[in-house]
């Protein structure tokens, strides 16, 4: 496994950890996990710390070993990952513009609670888009590293 592939795995795991933390903050802990709520938060905190330590170790180790860790193939694979991330961002932005347009059109007819939810939605949507785009980039890179490129 090349170092860039390890970075991709680390990036994907970071995104998933961030997504879990975000879901728990926004929606709260699922009812099925409420008896373990203390443990869930501890696990998430540990997960984030482990991820940060893992990325730090990879980074320090990378500087200590004098070898080529990135070349033209890694750049090309990364470009494919960025391309997929870009498509996801593009589709998300277009749907978000559509959503804002619909909210503006419905504003005179909709009730206040519904409008309040609709106005908060874009922020969560953008956060999910950021995580989805970044995760998609890592997944595309890992697919190319595993399949061979």
């Amino acid at each position: 496994m090349s170092r860039q592939e390890v970075y991709s795995w680390a990036s994907l795991l970071s995104n998933l950890a961030f997504l879990l933390v975000y879901i728990v903050i926004v929606f709260g802990i699922p009812s099925i996990l409420e008896p373990y709520s203390g443990n869930v938060i501890q696990v998430l905190v540990v997960l984030v710390i482990v991820d940060l330590v893992f990325q730090g170790v990879i980074s320090i180790q990378g500087k200590r070993i004098p070898m080529v860790d990135r070349d033209e193939r890694d750049d090309q694979i990364e470009a494919k990952g960025f391309k997929m991330g870009y498509y996801i961002f593009l589709v998300s932005i277009i749907t978000l513009i559509g959503h804002l347009f619909v909210v503006n059109v419905l504003e005179p007819f909709a009730d206040a609670d519904y409008l309040e939810i609709m106005k908060q939605l874009p922020m969560h949507y953008l956060v999910f888009t950021m995580i989805a785009g970044s995760s998609a980039k890592s997944i595309v890179q890992l697919v190319h590293y595993r399949r061979g490129y």
Partner: peptide
């Protein structure tokens, strides 16, 4: 070979297996 040409071992392996076409420079 990877060290001498400034590439990673995985890239040399991919080139040998004809799964990756190197740049003209490489």
């Amino acid at each position: 070979l990877a060290d001498r040409v400034g590439a990673t071992r995985q890239t040399i392996n991919a080139i040998e297996a004809a799964k990756y076409s190197p740049s003209l420079e490489l």
